[in-house]
């Protein structure tokens, strides 16, 4: 299957999707505003923490801040991905696309990448800004906690994995939903469970370590790959066009 994928066709889908997102006021606003909202609470938190804050309280505060930041890769693509298939159906653009040589794997991969790439850029940019603010303006004991290697590794590692999960879940819902709003609400809900892992690390319930991060990362990766395959199976041209399963 992989050998038959056309990179030209996938690139065409990615290019069109990103161009379309930029001109879709709802999606553009969501992608711009949501990350900024999730940045405000962590930055306020690190500035409001006093220099002599107790280490347990510090861990909890930083945990909440990190959780806010991991909401960005989980929630931003969920909104976008939920629109991918049902949005095309509502616009009447799905049938013309399906009549081209584009395969379902190419279509889904293109749509997923188009949601994944901007999410990655936005999420890392927001995290970068958070780290810069912490390094420049927070008290040294606060910034030392934020700059722990385990925390940074977890954030860097889980950002793409969480985004991938949200995207596949969103696309899966989008292939089955008959209404964009329902798809968006369901996708937002389904994108949240994997946050539990990062939340446990952030709150210090699980002690972050390289080994644990790698194990959990691999587990999430396996889930993402399985989710991608599951979505490909869900994508049934006949049902999408006629409403009746083949």
């Amino acid at each position: 299957m992989i050998s038959t994928l056309s990179t030209t066709r996938i690139r065409a889908v990615v290019g069109k999707e990103i161009r379309d997102y930029r001109r879709n006021r709802f999606i553009a606003t969501t992608m711009a505003i949501m990350p900024i909202l999730f940045m405000i609470a962590p930055i306020v938190t690190i500035f409001s923490l006093p220099a002599d804050v107790a280490s347990q309280k510090l861990d909890a505060a930083i945990g909440v801040s990190v959780l806010y930041l991991t909401l960005i890769p989980a929630l931003v693509p969920a909104v976008v991905a939920s629109y991918t298939i049902v949005g095309e159906r509502e616009q009447g653009t799905l049938e013309p696309v399906l009549t081209t040589p584009l395969t379902r794997e190419e279509l889904l991969l293109g749509k997923a990448l188009a949601a994944f790439l901007p999410t990655l850029v936005i999420s890392y940019a927001m995290y970068g800004i958070f780290l810069a603010c912490a390094g420049l303006f927070a008290h040294p004991n606060v910034s030392d906690d934020i700059f722990q290697a385990g925390r940074i590794l977890a954030q860097v590692l889980f950002t793409p994995l969480l985004a991938a999960w949200s995207i596949w879940a969103g696309i899966a819902i989008s292939t089955r939903a008959s209404d964009v709003r329902v798809a968006q609400q369901l996708s937002t809900l389904v994108s949240l469970p994997p946050l539990a892992v990062t939340a446990l690390m952030g709150f210090g319930v699980i002690t972050p370590s390289l080994r644990l991060a790698l194990i959990l990362g691999l587990a999430l990766l396996a889930i993402d790959v399985a989710a991608g395959r599951f979505v490909a199976k869900l994508f049934d041209r006949e049902r999408l066009l006629t409403g009746v399963k083949a």
């Binding site: 690139r11 065409a12 009447g92 013309p96």
Partner: peptide
């Protein structure tokens, strides 16, 4: 090539952008 009853164009894209997309899908 199939032209369905409703042309199914991406309304936020220009005419050329619509055609460029499909030219890409046909490789």
């Amino acid at each position: 090539a199939v032209m369905p009853e409703s042309p199914g164009l991406y309304l936020r894209l220009s005419v050329a952008e619509n055609l460029t997309y499909f030219a890409g899908l046909y490789d």
